[in-house]
Design a protein around this nucleic acid. Structure first.
Lengths: 243, 243
DNA sequence: AAGTGGTCTAGACCACATG
DNA sequence: ATGTGGTCTAGACCACTTG
């Protein structure tokens, strides 16, 4: 906890509150101390605390309610930018029946390729999960995931035959940073077979790495039949709207 | 200018400064009034002005330099999220020679499809521009663009044979909101021919709509040979880093 | 009615970069 | 050295919502 030694008072308070939240010490729904109390605790004025709380609220980590206090929001408010797709929700919004199938899980020491995918500096144990998401019984999306067992050791004993690793992780290992890569590729033979496509059909591949304060959490590659999926990102540069 | 009647003082000042910037009245490089002067002008304390300026800086609209003042940043600070690709820069970063070729321009009344692409409510004049971006003489990306002539009438007489419409627009019609859509498609015959690919090769299609305060500005569709291009988006939910 | 966050003030001191 | 933004204070009033 020696991060941010000579930062501003803001930053120090922000970091401390933030780590309470992302570490899970303050779970979703938890009420934060009131501004006046935090001000006393840190020996500063309320304005300073207010600034921090306002930032946390803007970042979506907490929700503020007058007369009641400030509360940690549900798992992750990644709504800001490039949404983290919950595939189940996505399929449901298309009014199709969702189902899920586990293909395989493998535990191993990270090889070179694994370390590249996970942004891992040292070798370490990883869990690979391959699974399929289906809509109305048809292949919707292939998921190939790598989980860093050093950061999420519980994943070793998780049962992914009924719960997809995405939702499972979201509850247990909140992330603080994410990187997306999107590209188009022609389906290779195995992918084509799984998705029931002709080989070389254009597919949209979305890769996402996520980190929390303890390091890389997971790398996941979603392969969608190309024309059946779009990524949408809205963007407004300034901070006008009240939201 | 009757927006935001009963907003907070913050909001009012923010809106006014922001519109000076996005309207172009304060062009890139322009020095904003000092905090103390703005405080006098609005009859408020410096803290209030400071809060606004801090927000503008976070949003990337201005840059603040001690002892010098605050300055409007270059055209658009879309660096935040899903970067607006300047293809010339992109090619340059690959250390390849960039070149550009205009294919065709067409002026017409917006048809149904044009209105859908531009998010246009009423019919109106539009300009279609098709052009190619090349890297080391090879096709790099096909650009198909629609410009709303009601918002950017000057485009009618612009010469796009040497300057790509992207950079041209960026200087003349700053945008305030953008939406991206990304998908993978198999190249149709014409696209394949232009990009020198086999038909049905996987391509990454990035579509972008942009708006400013006067309405839809432009819709553009970039088609890249799939494996040769990736979209990358970093995302950090909270506001920790000093950047 | 009371307690919370939202906003604002009129000062202050400091670090920093140099019209 | 000077003037700028960065930060912080110790108050204050208001609006909202309801332990």
């Amino acid at each position: 906890m020696d991060i941010a030694r000579d930062a501003t008072l803001h930053q120090r308070i922000l970091n401390e509150l933030e780590s309470q939240i992302v570490s899970g010490a303050w779970p979703p729904g938890h009420r934060l101390p009131f501004e006046v109390d935090l001000a006393k605790q840190y020996g500063c004025s309320r304005m300073t605390v207010n600034k921090v709380m306002t930032q946390l609220a803007k970042a979506g980590l907490i929700e503020r309610r007058k007369k009641s206090g400030s509360f940690v929001t549900q798992p992750q408010a990644q709504s800001a930018v490039l949404e983290i797709h919950d595939i189940k929700t996505e399929v449901a919004s298309l009014k199709l029946a969702y189902s899920y199938a586990l293909l395989a899980t493998t535990e191993r020491e990270a090889d070179i390729e694994d370390r590249r995918r996970l942004d891992l500096e040292k070798p370490g144990p990883v869990l690979e999960v391959r699974c399929m998401h289906l809509a109305a019984g048809d292949p919707f999306c292939l998921e190939e995931r790598l989980i860093n067992l050093e950061v999420v050791p519980d994943a070793r004993h998780a049962d992914f035959s009924n719960v997809a690793p995405g939702p499972w992780l979201l509850e247990r290992a909140p992330w603080t940073a994410a990187q997306h890569q999107i590209q188009a590729v022609g389906a290779d033979r195995e992918t084509a077979k799984l998705l029931k496509l002709k080989p070389e059909t254009a597919c949209l591949v979305i890769e996402r790495r996520t980190w929390n304060t303890f390091g890389p959490v997971t790398h996941v590659r979603f392969t969608y039949p190309g024309t059946r999926h779009r990524v949408v990102a809205d963007f407004q540069p300034s901070s006008s709207q009240p939201r």
